[in-house]
């Protein structure tokens, strides 16, 4: 019990004394997950909009596939990216394995289905009368699509925030493709795993507290957005 208390005390000391190693790890985590999220949004939003608005052969199959991919096991993604980027893999010549770029790729793969599926869901739930309204008011096809996306904006923001929560908490794939190299690819979750293994609970606990805090902020933002969306649709 004492060691846990001591761990917490030491963890708060690390946080309040702005420990350089700690903040380096946090910044890298935010950078990797942030960039992965930008990529996931740029790919997932148009894909979700296409699945929600267009009718094409195989659409239902594509929707089922995206929903299934939402539950992709991170270690499987890690293994897949590892095989692609390893020296003997098809993209091995790029030398990206054990780099932050490899981690961004892995996290993007995990986040794209989440953004796509939740954006699709937000878009299909827009009242069909909105499409008719914009059409009767003289909207072009593009303006009509933008009107629907605008109507689904709260759901779309929720999708992005949810994906951010998922990638920030992810450990399996980035451990495999990043290698957990100190000062280079070591992020919050991989550090927690490593330091716990070593019995060095102070840093692990400090990062755990920050990760929990970030998770709380993400959820609070998500909740606020959903509440705003609900008020607006009442």
């Amino acid at each position: 019990m004492d060691s846990i208390t001591q761990g917490f005390i030491r963890a708060f000391e690390l946080i309040f004394h702005l420990n350089a190693e700690l903040f380096g790890i946090i910044l890298l985590s935010l950078k990797v997950s942030g960039l992965a999220l930008v990529i996931a949004t740029l790919a997932g939003l148009p894909l979700g909009a296409m699945l929600g608005l267009k009718r094409f052969p195989g659409r239902n199959l594509a929707i089922s596939a995206v929903n299934t991919l939402m539950g992709l096991p991170p270690v499987v993604v890690g293994l897949f990216v590892y095989l692609i980027l390893s020296r003997k893999g098809p993209l091995g010549f790029l030398g990206l394995l054990y780099s932050p770029t490899a981690m961004i790729i892995a996290q993007s793969i995990l986040a794209i289905p989440i953004v796509t599926a939740l954006c699709h869901s937000a878009i299909v739930n827009v009242d069909p009368l909105i499409r008719q309204a914009s059409r009767t008011l003289g909207a072009t096809q593009r303006q009509e699509t933008l009107a629907i996306i605008h109507e689904a904006r709260y759901g779309i923001i929720s999708a992005i925030v949810a994906a951010f929560g998922r990638v920030m908490a992810e450990v399996g794939s980035i451990l495999i493709v990043g290698g957990n190299i100190a000062g280079y690819t070591r992020v919050m979750t991989t550090t927690i795993a490593l330091e716990t293994d070593k019995g060095n609970f102070e840093l692990a606990l400090a990062l755990g507290i920050i990760l929990l805090l970030l998770s709380f902020i993400v959820n609070a933002v998500l909740h606020a957005i959903q509440r705003k969306g609900m008020v607006a649709t009442q």
Binding site: L129, I130, R131, Q132, A133, H150, A232
Partner: peptide, 8 residues
């Protein structure tokens, strides 16, 4: 239309 689709 008989039912007006209202933008949010």
């Amino acid at each position: 239309l008989p039912r007006t689709g209202v933008f949010n």
